[in-house]
């Protein structure tokens, strides 16, 4: 009885039909809602299943579209089963499906059957960042020219405005190498990388770019994106990473279009 009440709450004002309809959409244990029927006394089970199927399949398809490398790694059947668990637990809360799947990487991290692939969640995080970069606001990127005009002694005071598309994803695993190998259509060979990797995701024009960041550059760029002056960000990066190379980091930042402008100190 309790199940039935949960599946089909009573409504009085003639406007309660969604409550009577939705539970069965994502919960296969709920029977066909009592408020619907087929024509001329026909049953409505297979008819209602059309809606159940539309909802579940289209949402799984939406996740598959956002996370193609993740699906390539797991195989389609594994991915679709994992996605089905997720959509039942956390269906979208926005009609914009390109916003969906933000909590899917965390779900993957704790998904029982994915524990043998501890890097899978980070690959999914890079894919989610890729789509955010794809839809981010358009903005010009800072070119090398204006930066070259600044006297060296003033460089350390510079504060930058991050480009709207710029994202950094850190991983304790070689997630960038695994992402890159599986996002392309070429066959994936043996991956020998084992070191932690960080990705820089940018979209300087209309193409999203994903780069593997050299040691310390993730810390450096995180600092700049948070609004720290260049000198502070570089000092933090050098402290935590002895191999950090500031001029190479600035070159990569400009080449990737990671920043939009100089905010102050220019």
């Amino acid at each position: 009885m309790q199940t039935l009440r949960k599946c089909h709450p009573e409504t009085l004002d003639g406007l309660g039909y969604p409550a009577g309809f939705v539970h069965g959409l994502l919960d296969p244990d709920c029977p066909t809602p009592a408020l619907v029927a087929g024509p001329n006394g026909k049953a409505a089970d297979k008819r209602f299943n059309v809606y159940r199927n539309n909802v579940t399949v289209s949402l799984i398809d939406a996740l598959a579209a956002v996370f193609p490398a993740t699906m390539r790694i797991t195989g389609e059947a594994f991915f679709r089963a994992m996605a089905r668990f997720h959509i039942r637990k956390a269906p979208p809360t926005s009609p914009l499906l390109f916003e969906y799947g933000r909590d899917f990487p965390d779900f993957i991290e704790h998904y029982e059957y994915a524990q043998s692939m501890p890097w899978l969640a980070d690959v999914a995080r890079i894919e989610r960042a890729w789509l955010d970069a794809y839809h981010a606001a358009d903005a010009a990127v800072l070119e090398a020219g204006p930066l070259a005009l600044i006297p060296p002694e003033r460089l350390s005071d510079l504060v930058f405005v991050a480009h709207p598309a710029t994202r950094i994803v850190r991983s304790a695993y070689p997630a960038v190498t695994i992402f890159s190998a599986n996002r392309a259509s070429d066959p994936v060979g043996r991956i020998d990388a084992t070191a932690p990797e960080s990705a820089l995701v940018t979209r300087p024009a209309l193409e999203v770019e994903v780069r593997l960041l050299p040691p310390g550059v993730d810390t450096f760029l995180d600092g700049l994106i948070a609004g720290e002056p260049l000198g502070n960000a570089a000092a933090t990066a050098s402290t935590c990473c002895l191999e950090f190379d500031l001029s190479a980091a600035i070159r990569m930042m400009l080449e990737a279009g990671a920043v939009a402008a100089i905010q102050q100190g220019g």
Binding site: L15, F21, L97
Partner: peptide, 19 residues
Amino acid sequence: THNTTYYNDLLPLPYTETT
């Protein structure tokens, strides 16, 4: 959409004076 959940399908409604 019902409450805050988006179902990504075009779901039907009863045809009454109220709706």
